[in-house]
Nucleic acid binder design. Sequence first.
DNA 1: AAAATTATTGCATTCGCAGTCATTCTGTTT
DNA 2: AAACAGAATGACTGCGAATGCAATAATTTT
Lengths: 348, 348
Amino acid sequence: MAKSSGKTSNKLVGNANNRRATSYDVARLAGVSQSAVSRCFKAGASISAKTRTKVEKAAKELSYQPNAIARGLITRRSNIVAVIITDLTNLNYPEVLSHLNRRLEEKNVHILLFTLGRESDVDKVLDQVWQYQVDGIIAAAQLTREQIEACDSRGLPIVFYNRVYPDSTVSSVCCDHGEGERQLVDGLLADGRRSFVVMSGPSDSWVSTARAKGAVTRLQEENVEISQVEGDYSYPRAVELVREMIDEGGSRPDAIICANDTMAIGCMDALRHEFDIKVPQDIAVVGFDGVSAATWSSYQLTTVVQPVERMVAAAVNMLIERVDDPELPAEKRLFAGQLQYGKSALLG
Amino acid sequence: MAKSSGKTSNKLVGNANNRRATSYDVARLAGVSQSAVSRCFKAGASISAKTRTKVEKAAKELSYQPNAIARGLITRRSNIVAVIITDLTNLNYPEVLSHLNRRLEEKNVHILLFTLGRESDVDKVLDQVWQYQVDGIIAAAQLTREQIEACDSRGLPIVFYNRVYPDSTVSSVCCDHGEGERQLVDGLLADGRRSFVVMSGPSDSWVSTARAKGAVTRLQEENVEISQVEGDYSYPRAVELVREMIDEGGSRPDAIICANDTMAIGCMDALRHEFDIKVPQDIAVVGFDGVSAATWSSYQLTTVVQPVERMVAAAVNMLIERVDDPELPAEKRLFAGQLQYGKSALLG
DNA sequence: AAAATTATTGCATTCGCAGTCATTCTGTTT
DNA sequence: AAACAGAATGACTGCGAATGCAATAATTTT
């Protein structure tokens, strides 16, 4: 602490020439024009080896880095995409975000991250997105038709992640929630389950609705008992719902179909530890997503695993294609989920 | 699908006048100068109510949004900070990121997100960070002294999240890992535990090292058995380590001290389900972080909860202060974790 | 009502880089 | 050696907004 001689002076130097080096500084030091410096940092530009060497030497000396902001201003390409996500605490999204980052990085594109507290914040977020001249948007959030059109009219490509606008020409990648639920239900039916609770997520979540509807639609084809409860994707709420369900003392269902894994885990814990109900013997529980906790040996959840990696790769490719060529028509890609047999339900 | 008359034409229009409106466009339409438009969008600028009205009307008509990139070029303030995170799949980080986003949003600052595959990628990431003229960095990753100095010399403030550089003048917020571990160990000792396994995270993680060292240091003050194993913060690896530990058939420890909750959960699952060992009766397990899964009733982990919200708020405030005034001296803030008693260890 | 004061406004310039164009240099061909 | 093609280079302009300064308008003071 006392002997801070070297370090602090260093800091003063840094603040003295507060300005970062520009291409002009490099040009002057290298004895070339600013254009030459610019060309040196652009692939495929016409520049001689000799000049390049001089420039690179000077650039290193000044630790020059081209200013991506200024470059973006003139090229109209920021190499930034906005990622709009509703709820990071959803166990599924960190994985999505992680893959997104890796895939985009490969293309030298960066992520400006926006998370939504309430859905009503979308307008505010979009304002910011526009101001920052991002090249495109990956949205894991619901946008109104007006909002989509506003992006459209600005020539700003969007790819939706896990939501689909059936009668609108917007691009999206999506897991086939309906089909996934159908598989789960088929398995449960084959297993002899006859009375069901469908636990949906928050009502404003398109994904939750798609899943719940998928399950219910399939169930209604059979002569079985169905009741629906509305959760919020969270563990504690699922526990509460199970309490209400069991405490009310009505007939217990044979199976609970949860709109995501986190709630399924909550149900299992509540059933087993609060009511000593055997899962899957007494009640089967299934989820959706394939989060890592689903494989933990306390749960071994039967669920549908979303092919996150492929979905993300598809979303990124679709978006970048449309950034490069805005005339490309919209495209919707639907990925089948992978049924994962666990021990929370006796299937197949 | 067939009647796409309205929509598609809309798209064509959007692409026709491909350019977004600029302040000049607004100025022309409003019959004022570009300066007036600029002032209209800057808080506290000198502008009459009459002009403001005209400008706002024109701006709305053209759906004009000031170009944050161009603004950043001249103000030297991008209102973007880089967030560098090692591993998003670490259950603790999504929560951190979520709070970061909320806090920064309040200050109208945005997040350019960088995740690190390997630590060696730091240089590449820093290059990008510099190019994008971010106002500052929040780093939940390890930087070398050279890298820190490089940021310093560019006048780029950094605040480290959960890592500390003892003999260096960099700002950081940090949970007191050592003290947290001490509390855990004290509890375990009071509970009569005499032989311990300390399961660290990856060796290149500063946090893991700090925690393991904290536990070991405290343990060495007592006459107890200590052995150390190296995990990687992950569930599956913790399971493997427990297998090795138990299968080897040596004497079983009384307690396993894990460097994070995820591994603690892995240990509990392995002990209970693979070896039918009772937790906490036979072996106590403790973790660190306070992730949500730690409270699930299957685990009810005894752990130290990091005050994430306060830590994030502190990090954001410290960073923004230093963006506003780069002369501010570095500051290190250490937050005590909150011991959370669960049923994975009989403490207190 | 004239002078003094203050509040608005527009002009011109700047931020840092990329791309256009005209010019110079290099190397090839005859 | 002259003529030429192609590569390399530099001067200059513009991307879109912010700002210092000077000019002008609105307001207050006397």
